[in-house]
Write a protein that binds this DNA or RNA. Sequence first.
DNA 1: GAGTGGTCTAGACCACCTG
DNA 2: AGGTGGTCTAGACCACTCT
Lengths: 250, 250
Amino acid sequence: MTLDQTPRVTDHPVRLEARPLYQQIRDLLVKRIIDGIWRPGSYLPSEQQLCTELGVSIGTIRKAMEDLVSQGILERQHGRGTQVVAHSSAQSRFRFLRFVHADGRPLDPVAHLLRQSVRNATLEERRQLELDAHEKVLVLLRTRSEAGEPLVYEKVILPAEMFARLDLKTGADISEEIYVFYQKRCGVTIMRTQDQIGLDSADAAIAEALGTKTGEPVLHVRRISFGLDGRRVEYRQSWSARLKYQTELD
Amino acid sequence: MTLDQTPRVTDHPVRLEARPLYQQIRDLLVKRIIDGIWRPGSYLPSEQQLCTELGVSIGTIRKAMEDLVSQGILERQHGRGTQVVAHSSAQSRFRFLRFVHADGRPLDPVAHLLRQSVRNATLEERRQLELDAHEKVLVLLRTRSEAGEPLVYEKVILPAEMFARLDLKTGADISEEIYVFYQKRCGVTIMRTQDQIGLDSADAAIAEALGTKTGEPVLHVRRISFGLDGRRVEYRQSWSARLKYQTELD
DNA sequence: GAGTGGTCTAGACCACCTG
DNA sequence: AGGTGGTCTAGACCACTCT
């Protein structure tokens, strides 16, 4: 973000880098969020303040911000200011929880953590999370239930170092979405996921958790989640005997 | 799009409607596309021309166009012009074909139309397509194969009137995506779909088409597709024994 | 070289929220 | 009333494409 002091007809700042100014500004804003200078939920300086601080025109700032709004990183409120998006339970559910009942009704589940452990990553897990050979993973086994009835069995694999401060309690029912804990406790914001849905047949653990028989067909969802910086931060597998997976394409 | 001739400090055109000018422009552009004034693949007038024609500034035109680009309705090419997006087979496949092989490899299938017929819509079909009681539907039964091996069995329900000019040949292998025919022959552009993925067990027709046994578990995808004007234009069900469904959320 | 979209600036005014 | 984001305008210059 450097000004060129050479006199020019319109006296523009100049792009020393090849990339457009507004993209550089955009990335600078993202960097400040990742670095924790602006935390989730807090307000950015006003457009005017950023203009003078960064020495660019307001249109350029706005264009950078619009990009981030459309990416879901910022949220603007007319008359009030611009906030870094903080994941709320309701919003995460709407955005990332794609299971619905067979008739299309939305789900409102509580999560129950069955077991957690830290161990070396398997080859598969290293590949999915792009981990080095020596890195350890935190493994969460949990169910999601509604009205006491278990509907989803889930195995969540996380890079242990990144999630050292996660500190979930085994055994308790939690209605808060886990992505909220990722953000609040570990500074990890999930921005994007890749989901793959297929058939599977229930093994003993799945059958017991979902109350079906071993070998019964179940829906299997394999998810890789990406953080603000684009790195892979979660590898999750979900199994369900009765729910459907719903999504929109555009 | 009306100019207010009252003298004002900055001599702006004025919004007689409550909605912002750029939104009115955006909707006007969409209307012209729907009305066939600008057809898929053709070029719009340049930004400058639209400015003078519509009596607004270039920034307003640009903002309207940017909206439509992000919706996938327009496509801009630097130095060349702005086009109405025409569905190509490759692009439709990338955008709307979500099946992949079990190992994640993308699919490159040919479609084979088994049977087509026109009949009254069932209650279920009327509900999914929001049709009136008397309306008829065009039913397509087809498979998608790769290397001669059938991988997907598909039942496509279309409002008969809207797709009167579709004119598909039964029995031939077609590698072109059907959405291209929708657009070219029937003027229907698919903009958005809602997909629901669940478990099913193969009935006789599915089992025969896919070469599996009746009662075997299969992946079941139920899709509703929406046109440019937001109306429901296609209700499709797909079954597959071996493929997975892959999608991204952000 | 002429024409197109892409970037960037500058400034006015409007609509909304908060004190 | 003062500050914030939202809309709209006007104009310069840049980068790309075609002929």
